[in-house]
């Protein structure tokens, strides 16, 4: 498996990371080296093996339905790039 240049660009697009042609070419080589390493996984037969998501076989704990949080928006918005009237501002959203 190796990534083509368009695939590298498509992945960067999905990840919303701007990438120049030169950067994409450089990334392509390194990514393909890494995927060679990753491909070693295919050497082992995992038929019938259950995937493991966590180190511990535990289940989800449930929180009681209670309101525990108070308004801290002033504190949180003090570190925001751009706010107005309590809203986070972003370039126009088009639906």
């Amino acid at each position: 498996m190796s990534l083509s240049l368009p695939e590298v660009k498509q992945v960067a697009w999905l990840a919303r990371i701007e990438i120049t042609d030169a950067e994409a070419s450089a990334a392509q080589g390194k990514l393909n080296d890494i995927f060679k390493l990753i491909e070693q996984m295919q050497s082992v037969d995992t038929e019938g093996v259950a995937p493991m998501a966590h180190g511990q076989d535990v289940v989800q704990r449930l929180r009681e339905d209670r309101v525990t949080e108070t308004d801290r928006h002033v504190l949180y918005q003090a570190i925001a790039p751009q706010v107005e009237d309590g809203l986070y501002l972003v370039p126009k959203v088009i639906e």
């Binding site: 925001a80 370039p91 959203v93």
Partner: peptide, 22 residues
């Protein structure tokens, strides 16, 4: 959007994301 770095210059929303993250 809510904290951290935001690119200084961008056109639309998608460009803001892509430049900020790049």
């Amino acid at each position: 959007v809510r904290y951290g770095y935001r690119a200084a210059e961008y056109g639309d929303l998608t460009e803001m994301y892509r430049k900020t993250r790049a």
